[in-house]
């Protein structure tokens, strides 16, 4: 091997002790003949050493507990996610938590007088429909849960897409039935309202509409209209809003169940 075979890569490898055995003799011979080059490489080796001197201290420091916890079973917030059957499910959880946090922060930001004024039209519409129909004793719905198949077929036809009705019995809410409502003034499309109630007669309403903007899917969002909490989101071209006069965490739990049923 003559001097021309020595590449800069060989010289770098010499610095790092990564030179293959086969190239070692020739490189060393080259460096004996070129003291200037040998000095340059020695300088690089001093750099290596100064880097280790400067940063090795980090190796001896106690690792902060929150970092170690990230890698220990049962100790961390992100431990449980991968145990869930589907990634989608994990994503849903994340959205719900995110939505909850955002909602919570919005609530904190709004002064009592302004509460709800900033809620988008859809959430507001859902809350109003809730207020109007949920106190109804004799005619809370147009079609009762006893005719569920008919209810779904009818509303699906009017909304223009196949709807599914989440079952919330596990959450303690039985389907009462549903009705058709006018959409917002600028959107002619009607919306569907499903009503549920628990053993004490406390009611929740779920409003579904074909969403005009088909491209977006949103996180769970929360709006408060007076005493009515509304979780709303867009998923697979449908907008949903779940309204109720109950604790936000409870409403969130149910919104979670609704989402999960619609996205099995």
């Amino acid at each position: 091997m003559n001097q021309r075979d020595i590449s800069e890569a060989d010289l770098q490898a010499h610095v790092d002790g990564q030179l293959p055995e086969s190239a070692r003799a020739a490189t060393e011979a080259y460096l004996r003949e070129q003291p200037q080059e040998a000095e340059r490489l020695a300088g690089y080796q001093r750099q290596n050493q100064s880097l280790r001197d400067a940063y090795d201290g980090a190796l001896d420091e106690t690792v902060p507990a929150h970092l170690t916890a990230a890698m220990q079973r049962g100790g961390s917030k992100f431990q449980r996610w991968p145990h869930l059957p589907h990634l989608r499910y994990a994503a849903v959880l994340a959205w719900i938590v995110f939505g909850g946090l955002i909602g919570w922060q919005l609530r904190a930001l709004q002064s009592p007088g302004e509460s709800g004024r900033g809620a988008p039209a859809f959430a507001r519409q859902a809350a109003i429909a809730h207020v109007v129909y949920s106190p109804e004793v004799r005619h809370p719905v147009e079609v009762g849960a006893d005719q569920e198949a008919h209810l779904v077929a009818w509303l699906s036809k009017r909304i223009g897409t196949q709807l599914r009705v989440p079952q919330l019995n596990e959450q303690g809410y039985a389907l009462v039935g549903g009705r058709l409502l006018p959409g917002s003034p600028d959107e002619r499309a009607p919306i569907a309202q499903f009503m549920y109630q628990d053993a004490k007669g406390l009611r929740l309403t779920l409003v579904v509409r074909a969403d005009a903007d088909r491209s977006r899917e949103t996180a769970f969002r929360f709006a408060q209209e007076k005493n009515i909490g509304v979780f709303y989101w867009v998923d697979q071209k449908l907008g949903y809003a779940l309204s109720g006069e109950i604790e936000k965490t409870e409403l969130l739990r149910i919104a979670h169940a609704v989402y999960r049923q619609l996205n099995p």
Partner: peptide, 26 residues
Amino acid sequence: GTQAVPVIPRLRRYARALTGDRLMAD
């Protein structure tokens, strides 16, 4: 996790040299 924990000090050393800032590194 058991295998990953011993790697953390190495990650911290590298991150600190990379960012030049303790908090950013962690």
